[in-house]
C-alpha cells in the first residue's frame, strides 16, 4: 500500500550517528588442519567469529562484495576443500541475529563436511598458510551528526564515514545483538515510518560494498521524502 504523504515528522528523540574503529588482537591460536580449525571455532570468543565474518567488508571496501568470510577463504584456498569453502561462503550472515547462532551454523557446516569427507582431516596446510584466529577490539564513539527528521537523516547519511554506516548496520545488529539495524529501528519507533523501516531491514548488507549500501539506503529515504511509499 502506498503512502503518498510527504513525511515531515520531527522525532522526539533524534538519531545520533556513532562510528566505530577496531584493532585486531591475536588469540595466539592457529590451525593447520580441519579438526584443529573446528576445535578452535567452538571455543574462540564471539569477537573472533565476528572479526572473521566481517573484516573483509571494511578492509576491501573498494572491491565488489565478493569475499564472504575468512573461514571460507581458508577452506577453499589453503586447505583445498572447495566444497566446504563454497558452503561456508554461502552462509547468509544476515539471517542470524546473534554471533552465537552464526557460530553454531559455521560449526555445523564444518562438522557435516568432516563426516561426509573423513579423509580431509588428514590434510595439513604449510605453516605459512595456517589459519590465525584474530579478534576485533572495537571502540565506539559519537560523531557530531544527529538527525530529527527524515530530511536531516538523508543529509547526514551522505556525509558520515563508512565507519558510522558500518556500526549502525553491522555492529549494532549482530555484535551488540540489537536484533535489527539502528536505522530501521529509528525509522519505525522514532519517526513512525514502518514501511521505510521494513525496506531497509530487508536489504542484505553483506552483498553490497559499503558505498553501494549507503547509496541504496539514501535512495529509499529520498523516495519516501518525495512522497513515495512502500519504499
Amino acid at each position: 500500500m502506498e503512502n503518498r504523504v510527504v513525511p515531515m515528522k520531527q522525532a522526539e528523540h533524534p538519531f545520533h550517528f556513532y562510528a566505530r574503529q577496531s584493532i585486531q588482537e591475536s588469540t595466539g591460536w592457529r590451525a593447520v588442519t580441519l579438526p584443529q580449525f573446528l576445535k578452535y571455532l567452538r571455543i574462540v570468543p564471539g569477537s573472533v567469529i565476528y572479526h572473521h565474518t566481517h573484516h573483509y567488508l571494511q578492509q576491501h571496501q573498494f572491491l565488489s562484495p565478493e569475499p564472504p568470510n575468512d573461514f571460507s577463504y581458508w577452506a577453499f584456498q589453503s586447505l583445498g576443500a572447495r566444497r566446504l569453502g563454497e558452503r561456508l561462503a554461502s552462509i547468509s550472515t544476515i539471517e542470524f541475529d546473534t554471533i552465537r547462532s552464526l557460530r553454531e551454523e559455521i560449526v555445523r557446516v564444518v562438522e557435516e563436511h568432516l563426516r561426509a569427507h573423513p579423509l580431509v582431516r588428514l590434510r595439513i596446510v604449510p605453516v605459512e598458510e595456517a589459519f590465525y584466529f584474530v579478534k576485533a577490539v572495537t571502540v565506539v564513539f559519537p560523531t557530531p551528526y544527529t538527525a530529527r527528521s527524515l530530511k536531516e537523516f538523508s543529509e547526514r547519511l551522505e556525509s558520515v564515514t563508512i565507519d558510522s554506516l558500518y556500526f549502525h548496520i553491522f555492529e549494532a545488529r549482530l555484535r551488540l545483538e540489537r536484533g535489527e539495524n539502528d536505522f530501521s529501528r529509528w525509522f519505525e519507533t522514532g519517526l513512525g515510518e514502518p514501511e521505510l523501516a521494513r525496506a531497509v531491514r530487508a536489504l542484505d548488507p553483506y552483498t553490497h560494498t559499503m558505498e553501494e549500501l549507503r547509496g541504496t539506503i539514501l535512495r529509499l529515504v529520498r523516495r519516501r521524502l518525495e512522497g513515495g511509499g512502500d519504499a
Binding site: I23, S47, V137, V139, V140, F141, L176
Partner: peptide, 16 residues
C-alpha cells in the same frame, strides 16, 4: 590511539 583506549578499558567493545 585505539590500542591505548582498549588497554585502558580492557573490553572487546568500548563505548566512549
Amino acid at each position: 590511539l585505539l590500542l591505548m583506549l582498549a588497554l585502558e578499558s580492557g573490553q572487546d567493545v568500548t563505548f566512549l
